[in-house]
């Protein structure tokens, strides 16, 4: 474990807790894309298939349970909670899951480290995580206004993966044969997708004005 990875995990943890707290306290999911949340639940499910078979550390297992639990409870809140669901904007959140899931699945079948079920599922989760934020970014552009909690949520999500890139660079130089080029490429693509959001987020923060994404 290195400081970059710990900071990345904490940032990621904080992002999902911020979202869960927002939905739980104000009982609203305005501006949140259910599609993205469902994709994240799928990412964690396919990534943590080994949660009960391979024990890495208590930290690893606890964090996996938190990510699985929080992502599924966010989906439950938006889908089932009688108050929260009323604030879900399903007419705007229309991104088709399968536009992302199917290409990632096909790519994982053809480009992976090893052609086993677990490995393909793990690779699929990496590709899917890279693009899972798209429905949320599309929704933010459509609704044009971003309440600052949602802005912080997306910012923290992007920051976590950027910290992981620093972690991969650090591990590449400190650990022999630490090579996971698929992880690295997926991670860089994911961070680049956030880049334009970061740009507008910093612009609005610097000019101290409301965050507006260009149409």
């Amino acid at each position: 474990m290195n400081i970059f990875r710990l900071a990345g995990d904490m940032t990621h943890l904080f992002s999902v807790l911020v979202l869960l707290l927002k939905i739980h306290t104000i009982k609203s999911c305005a501006g949140i894309s259910l599609k993205t949340q469902e994709l994240y639940a799928l990412v964690f499910t396919t990534r943590y298939l080994d949660i009960f078979t391979d024990f890495i550390s208590l930290y690893n297992t606890v964090m996996k349970l938190i990510f699985l639990g929080s992502s599924f409870s966010i989906v439950w809140y938006i889908r089932r909670h009688k108050i929260v669901r009323r604030s879900y904007d399903k007419d705007q959140d229309t991104f088709r899951h399968y536009f992302l899931v199917i290409p990632c699945l096909v790519l994982a079948v053809f480009i992976n480290h090893k052609f086993t079920f677990k490995e393909v599922m793990w690779t699929f989760s990496l590709y899917l995580e890279a693009v899972a934020i798209l429905p949320q970014l599309v929704l933010l552009q459509r609704t044009r206004n971003i309440d600052n909690l949602t802005g912080q949520y997306v910012f923290l999500l992007g920051a976590y993966r950027a910290l992981y890139i620093l972690n991969w660079i650090y591990r590449h130089f400190t650990e022999p044969h630490y090579v996971h080029w698929i992880t690295w490429i997926a991670g860089v693509v994911q961070t680049l997708l956030y880049a334009d959001f970061f740009y507008y987020y910093f612009q609005s923060w610097k000019n101290n004005e409301k965050l507006q994404l260009p149409a």
Binding site: R5, H12, D50, S57, M63, H113, W122, Y164, N167, H180
Partner: peptide, 10 residues
């Protein structure tokens, strides 16, 4: 032999 690369990252 192909060492099982442990997925120790989240």
């Amino acid at each position: 032999e192909e060492q099982e690369d442990i997925k120790d990252e989240l």
